[in-house]
Simulated assay, not measured.
Amino acid sequence: MKIDITDYQVPAAKKVNLKKWSTLVKPIYKSKDHYQQLLAEQISELSTMQQKHYAANSHSVLLIFQAMDAAGKDGAIRHVMSGINPQGCQVYSFKHPSVAELDHDFLWRTVQCLPERGRIGIFNRSYYEDVLIVRVHPEILHNQGLPKELLNEKTIWDERYQSINDLEKHLQRNGTKVIKFFLHLSNEEQRKRFLARIDAPEKNWKFSQADIEERKYWDDYMKAYEACLSATSTEDAPWYIVPADDKENARLIISEVILDAFRVLNPAFPQPDSQRTAELQEIRKMLET
């Protein structure tokens, strides 16, 4: 399997026009069985990498997933990370902020959930919500308790992009690799998936009237995503725009991006020094006798 992840990477300082980024590309897999085989191979390699990553306890990895509703974030996380030891993985889903969270800056609630060294952290939505949904619905911004002199909508988004870039640069300097995915779904495919949720009783819980209301703001969301992706895709923490109309294909791409990052980190099991080796040999003698 050959996946060139640079095909999906947003270059730093590149202005993004989402109409030029496809939501559907030629499948990497030849059949459903082939897809299962490829994903299983990726999961196996990722599981090995994660064991070494956990044992090395030096770096941490943060995966960020952003997308429109029904783009497949939950499914991608569930399938791609299915071989990971839960002890070394933490998943957080960020929805409407609480009263306590609103009494802090917009990064506060997510910073508390950053992964420890040796762990993989997954943000299903993230601090990026504060430059996406909050930008589309400015009334949310005005309910965040900010001082009036800071509520300048001509400057606040650029200021928040800068805060995000500064945070991610800080994380990079301190051993956290940030990998960011935007699952790029078409308006028509979202419509089909919403209909499927209505037709399948076991998926009814995933659907609400609010989802339909948000569809009315599709164009506004695309503009917000374009501005966000353009401003926050950096050399250290690039965005990957993943074509999401084909769920299976998207999962293979996401998995390969994660694996590529781990290959660069190249985690390894700690090697014992001479003192530790001698200690282990003494323990062996005790056990054998």
Rank of each mutant, 00 (worst) to 15 (best):
T6G: 07
V10D: 00
P11A: 05
A12F: 02
K14Y: 12
V16S: 02
K19G: 04
K26E: 11
K30H: 11
S31H: 09
K32R: 15
Y35W: 06
Q36F: 04
A40Q: 13
A40W: 06
E41V: 15
I43C: 15
E45F: 12
L46D: 10
Q51N: 14
K52E: 11
L62E: 10
A67N: 07
M68Q: 02
A71P: 04
K73Q: 01
D74L: 02
A76R: 04
R78A: 15
S82D: 13
G83I: 15
I84H: 06
N85V: 09
P86E: 08
V91N: 05
Y92R: 11
F94T: 02
H96Q: 08
H96W: 00
W108I: 04
Q112E: 10
E116V: 12
G118P: 00
N124D: 14
R125Y: 08
S126W: 02
S126H: 05
H137W: 01
P138V: 09
H142N: 11
Q144F: 10
E153T: 14
K154S: 09
K154Y: 07
K154I: 03
W157K: 15
E159K: 15
Y161V: 06
S163A: 15
I164L: 10
K169A: 14
K169R: 14
N174W: 11
G175Y: 07
K180H: 01
H184Y: 03
E189D: 04
Q190I: 01
A196W: 01
F207W: 07
S208W: 03
Y217S: 12
D220F: 04
D220Y: 02
K223L: 10
K223W: 01
A224S: 11
L229G: 00
E235Y: 07
I241D: 00
R251P: 06
I253E: 04
I254A: 08
L265G: 05
A268Y: 11
A268M: 12
T277M: 11
Q281N: 15
T289N: 15
